[in-house]
Nucleic acid binder design. Structure first.
Length: 249
DNA sequence: GCGACAG
DNA sequence: ATCTTGTCGC
């Protein structure tokens, strides 16, 4: 019933959060230890968070898919209070406590270890090279990538028009990610490596997960789940239903 | 100094 | 992220 929104020691100020990023960024492993994209039996986890700022409430979702079939193997949610205000570049501090809780819950009920985490946002494509996907990867040790819908502060050439076409996402002259077309003639997504995944592999995983739609199936499933969970939790609160007061699956 | 800025 | 109807198309 008790859902800590801010774990002990969680940063309270922007300065503290920046210090944490500077410390943890040193632990990022840029070499590839990710499973083969689309490999049967590999568990890929999609993660997302929905907010109700009015009620200071967040709902996180973690969904496990089979990398080959894209079948949903397990789902988990977690609820809490907003852990940090939204500050561009510090998104992780807002979302990670609830995401870790959902991920723990998912491990319990699936009984399987994730081979890859797919986050809504950035990994290396970040002002300090330590976005949400990098942060979550370092904390869990699981290979991770970030797939975002917008280029944030970076620029890229327009990738070619076909699925699979990509262009470097640049911070000046440094390649920090890829603009990747996942469907013919559809707006690209912005992919970057988080932890223990190369950029090339991050693109391959993204394409393998986005077979029919612009966004990876992992992201679509997690997005739908956390939104539904938040709706139900808010309704429950309005009705004064105690069953919605804590965490749920 | 001002605006822009993952979700 | 979220506020929000209908509409065009596969």
């Amino acid at each position: 019933m008790n859902t800590p929104s801010r774990p002990a020691g969680w940063p309270r100020t922007e300065a503290e959060a920046l210090a944490v990023q500077d410390e943890l960024r040193l632990r990022v492993d840029g070499t590839d230890h990710s499973p083969e994209p689309g490999a049967s039996g590999t568990v890929v986890v999609g993660l997302d968070v929905a907010y109700d700022d009015e009620r200071d409430m967040v709902a996180a979702a973690a969904v496990a898919l089979d990398a080959h079939s894209l079948d949903v193997l397990a789902r988990a949610t977690a609820f809490g209070r907003v852990a940090f205000p939204y500050v561009p570049g510090l998104l992780a501090f807002r979302e990670i406590p609830a995401l870790l809780e959902a991920l723990d819950s998912l491990r319990e009920k699936s009984g399987r270890e994730p081979g890859l985490l797919v986050c809504d946002g950035y990994g290396r494509a970040h002002p300090r090279r330590f976005g949400l996907a990098s942060h979550l990867g370092v904390l869990t040790g699981v290979p991770s990538i970030g797939v975002a819908k917008n280029p944030f502060v970076f620029t890229s050439a327009e990738p070619g028009p076909r699925r699979g076409d990509s262009a470097p996402l640049l911070d000046g002259t440094e390649e920090v990610g890829s603009a990747l077309r996942t469907q013919d003639g559809v707006k690209p997504v912005y992919v970057s490596s988080g932890h223990r995944v190369s950029l090339q592999a991050a693109r391959a995983h993204t394409l393998s997960l986005a077979r029919r739609y612009r966004l990876p199936e992992t992201t679509r499933c997690a997005d739908a789940l956390c939104r539904a969970a938040l709706r139900e939790a808010v309704q429950g609160e309005v009705r004064g239903d105690a069953a919605y007061g804590g965490k749920q699956s």
